[in-house]
Computed example of a mutant assay.
Amino acid sequence: MKKENAVLILPGWQNSGADHWQTRWEQRHGYTRVAQHDWQRPLRGDWTVQLQEAVLAAPAPVVLVAHSLGCILTAWWADHAPRSTVAKVQAALLVAPGDVEQDDLRQQLPGWAPIARQRLPFRATLVGSQNDPYCRAERARQLAADWGAAWVDAGAVGHINSASGLGDWPAGHALLEELLKDFPDGNHKT
């Protein structure tokens, strides 16, 4: 019997609402949202512990699907968590990272800068937008390069959230499917 991948949804600051593609994927595909204690005043240490516990509790292999601050969390966690836990993660889909080093976001989200910039120890695809108010496309492209992630330009779709009007965002799910298809067991939950 083949193992299924555990897909963990990592929302950003203020969580992902009912119309967000992450919530739709969670409901449609049975993925698991990593719950945080405080979505309004996120603390990097607390969020890191929650991700660590979720990865430990999940069956391997694990795939992360992060949006906005969830992308920044993924990079930080991968650089600071025990290698044995990080090794459970096989891939990550990173969507619209929030640039917490920008002055306005740095003030709104104290304690999240600097961004961990090391190469991620798992396969990753980073999707950015040409007109994301929280991260310029050039900056998102640089984060993709730093993290060793494949870069995908989604066009001018804002912050790639519910306000972008993407619905179930089938193009994004196709990118996730692409990340999953080359796994040794070839199986995953859809």
Rank of each mutant, 00 (worst) to 15 (best):
V86D: 04
H80A: 15
A91Y: 04
E101Y: 07
L43H: 15
L56V: 15
E101C: 13
A66C: 11
D99N: 15
D79P: 00
Q90P: 00
T48C: 12
W39R: 10
P42D: 04
G45D: 10
R28A: 15
L51N: 01
R41N: 14
P82I: 00
R83D: 13
A96N: 08
T48P: 04
V100N: 00
V55K: 04
Q40F: 08
A92N: 07
L69P: 02
D99W: 08
L51A: 01
R41V: 03
L93M: 03
P97A: 13
P82H: 12
Q40P: 00
W76S: 12
A87F: 06
C71N: 11
L43R: 15
G98K: 02
T32S: 15
R83E: 13
V89I: 15
L93A: 01
A35L: 14
E101W: 06
W39N: 07
V55Y: 05
H29K: 09
C71G: 08
C71K: 06
A81K: 05
V55D: 06
Q90A: 13
W39V: 07
R41C: 07
R28P: 04
A92W: 02
R28V: 06
A78V: 02
T48N: 11
L56Y: 09
G70L: 00
Y31K: 02
V86G: 09
A96M: 03
P61V: 03
V86H: 04
A96W: 00
W77T: 05
V55L: 06
V34A: 04
L73F: 12
A96Y: 00
L73N: 11
R41Q: 14
D46C: 09
D38V: 02
W76K: 07
D46E: 15
K88D: 05
I72R: 01
L56G: 10
Q50H: 12
A57Q: 11
P59E: 14
P59N: 11
E101K: 08
D46M: 11
V49S: 13
L73H: 11
V62Q: 08
A92C: 07
P59D: 14
P59A: 12
P97E: 10
I72G: 04
P61I: 10
T74P: 05
G70I: 03
E101N: 11
P59M: 07
V65K: 01
R28N: 12
V63Y: 02
R83V: 12
